[in-house]
Simulated scan of single mutants.
Amino acid sequence: MVCSSAIALGAGIVMGIVCWAIHVQSPAPPPIALIGLLGMVAGESGARLVRRRLAMWRARRKPVR
């Protein structure tokens, strides 16, 4: 998790530098971009939670032989 976050941060910084160097404005205003990132993090966490709960539910419903 930390490694992928570090890679994502590094990629974002590199893209920010590239956009600054070629004088291109960011595709989204900073507040909107941050809200989008928050949504991505929430979606990732939510999917992980749902997957864990589903696995627990399936384990409880498994018939004992």
Rank of each mutant, 00 (worst) to 15 (best):
R52E: 13
L54D: 11
I32S: 07
S45P: 00
A6D: 06
L54C: 07
L38D: 07
M56I: 05
R52Y: 13
V18N: 01
K62M: 12
G36E: 05
E44S: 14
A6M: 10
R53Q: 15
A11H: 01
A33Q: 05
V64C: 02
V14E: 06
A21G: 08
V18G: 01
A42G: 02
S26F: 10
L9V: 13
M56C: 11
L38Q: 01
L37G: 12
V14A: 13
V50H: 11
A11Q: 04
M1K: 07
A59N: 03
S45D: 11
I32E: 05
P30Q: 04
I7K: 01
Q25S: 14
P31R: 03
M15P: 00
G16K: 01
R53Y: 10
L49G: 01
I17F: 12
S26C: 02
C19F: 15
R48D: 13
S26I: 03
H23L: 09
H23E: 15
L38N: 01
G10R: 00
V41T: 03
L34I: 11
P31G: 04
A8M: 09
G46Q: 05
M56V: 07
I35N: 01
A47E: 09
L34Y: 12
G10T: 07
R61E: 14
P27R: 00
R52N: 08
K62E: 10
Q25C: 02
R48T: 11
A59C: 03
P29Q: 08
P27S: 02
L34V: 12
L37C: 09
L49A: 15
L49K: 11
I35W: 04
R61M: 14
A42C: 09
M40K: 05
G10D: 02
G43P: 00
V50N: 05
P63C: 04
S4P: 00
A6Y: 02
I7D: 02
E44W: 12
V2I: 14
A6T: 06
R60T: 04
L9Q: 03
C19A: 13
A6W: 07
P29V: 03
G36P: 00
M40Y: 09
S4D: 08
R52Q: 12
A55W: 02
W57I: 12
M40H: 04
M1P: 03
A59T: 01
I35V: 15
G16A: 03
K62G: 00
R65L: 11
R48E: 12
A47G: 10
M40N: 02
A59Q: 04
C19M: 15
G10F: 07
G12A: 04
L34H: 08
G36D: 03
